[in-house]
């Protein structure tokens, strides 16, 4: 799994880094911490000078240290290994002794970009081929991001991968997962699985109904999902919600649960839940929000 953590200098970013460290501790994901700020005006300066010259460099370095502190050094997949001379087969039958620095098992990099925060975060995600973008936001109200508003919403609406907007210090007890049972993607189920494991929560699988009986295929899909979770000792149940009341259900549920919405290309939810409503959900939700793709 590849995770992109978009950070700024607000306290919620420190919280996001903490949560992502836990997720990375479970998944041994490749992680990039990205900050977007004013243009860098120096190259190769010693670290203390760099910190004075750019406001984000210090924050990024602190986040990296906090991330690494989550792991015991001997067991960390991000710990750099020693450098040695090793014979390497450079082509079949030809060996060359090269000075090899065995890197960490998994990548942790910090990247500083300048420009429009939304464009830069999305560009970094594309370059990394991320599976998940994680970013923070205050518990209620607009998400202020270094002077710009609603950056998490804009990223969430435009990303090609899943986006997790983490609200600070809210204990997650339940994930309410709206999957659009006719077009469930494997990727979205897998992302939910990691979240359920990370937060040790119960799982409410929300199915859509138009008030009539469920189609046999839909019923079969939902039943298969439930059996899948039960077989893995995850407390899960199905709740059917009428299409007409889905939007109000989501906004109410967001007050007490982490909402996970599948917003993939063919998702009915993406039609029912346009950009404006996603903005409102992220702004109004007291808990974290996961948009799955």
């Amino acid at each position: 799994m590849r995770i992109l953590v978009a950070v700024d200098q607000h306290p919620y970013s420190a919280h996001v880094v903490k949560d992502v460290a836990k997720l990375a501790g479970n998944t041994w994901a490749d992680v990039t911490l990205v900050g977007v700020g004013p243009k860098m005006t120096y190259i190769g300066q010693p670290s203390n000078k760099a910190e004075k010259k750019h406001p984000l460099t210090k924050a990024l370095r602190n986040y990296r240290r906090n991330f690494l502190d989550y792991f015991e050094k001997e067991e960390s997949p991000y710990e750099k290994r020693a450098c040695n001379y090793e014979f390497v087969e450079v082509k079949r039958g030809v060996w060359e002794e090269l000075y090899i620095c065995r890197g960490a098992m998994k990548d942790l990099k910090i990247v500083l970009r300048s420009g429009n925060p939304v464009k830069e975060i999305l560009a970094q995600s594309q370059e990394d081929d991320s599976d998940l973008i994680a970013m923070g936001c205050y518990k209620s109200g607009d998400c202020q991001w270094e002077g710009a508003v609603n950056i998490p919403q804009k990223v969430a609406n435009n990303a090609a991968c899943s986006v997790l907007v983490i609200k600070k210090e809210k204990k997650i007890r339940k994930i309410a997962c709206c999957l659009d049972q006719e077009n469930i993607s494997q990727k979205s189920i897998e992302m939910i699985n990691q979240m359920v494991t990370l937060y040790q929560t119960e799982l409410e699988i929300v199915g859509l109904t138009d008030g009539t009986a469920l189609k046999p295929m839909v019923e079969k899909n939902l039943d298969a999902i439930l059996k899948y979770y039960n077989a893995r000792q995850i407390k899960a149940w199905i709740k059917l919600v009428d299409v007409a009341s889905m939007a109000s259900f989501i906004s109410q549920e967001a007050r007490r649960s982490m909402m996970a919405l599948w917003m993939g290309e063919h998702s009915l939810l993406s039609k029912m839940f346009p950009r404006g409503k996603v903005d409102k959900l992220i702004r109004g939700s007291e808990s974290s929000v996961l948009l799955l793709r």
Partner: peptide, 28 residues
């Protein structure tokens, strides 16, 4: 699909080459 710190550590103790959590891309 259900990765934990313990399973990752145990896997490496048992000598796995790598540990990948789902979802991952085919390229990975």
């Amino acid at each position: 699909g259900f990765a934990t710190m313990e399973t990752a550590k145990e896997s490496f103790k048992k000598g796995v080459f790598d540990f990948l959590a789902k979802p991952f891309k085919l390229g990975e």
